[in-house]
Amino acid sequence: MDESVGVLDGLWMWLEALPLSARIGESAWFPFLESIHVVASTFLFGSILMLDLRLLGRASVSHRISRIVAEIVPWTLAAALLAVLTGFPLFSTRATHYAHNIAFQIKIVLLLLAATNMLWYHLRTARTIASWDTAPKPISAARFAGMCSVFMWIGVMLSGRWVGHLL
């Protein structure tokens, strides 16, 4: 365990020593990327919330779930990609610090949980979607996925915002 942490720390130190990381950290690139990161992450949550509320039977109940998935998820994934592409350079400016920042660690765990929840829904739960696609209140596994998503993303937002308060 200790050894693997050591290897990772070596990676973080290498990353933050890159000239590009230093340039981002010392210039207007940092706030620029951060403002795009905020736009991307709020759009990510704002878009997936529409699907989550449909799964919970709270909104757009007259629309097929599969239709909302087809229309919303590509936008959510595009926003997620943008959030990662802007988030990684931000991380690289002080990689060692962020890797040891408890808020950042919690954020990453919640992100992985949210991604797992999403994958589980699409690969397992949605297999039987034909029988509840039009149901105002879908099966409990689908409702559970929607609820988990809402709470996990709120957690990601909270821990993400907290990262900057632990400098």
């Binding site: 905020v38 736009v39 709020t42 759009f43 878009s47 937002m157």
Partner: peptide, 9 residues
Amino acid sequence: ILGVTAIMG
């Protein structure tokens, strides 16, 4: 920020 999320959505 959750308010911003609602604006986005």
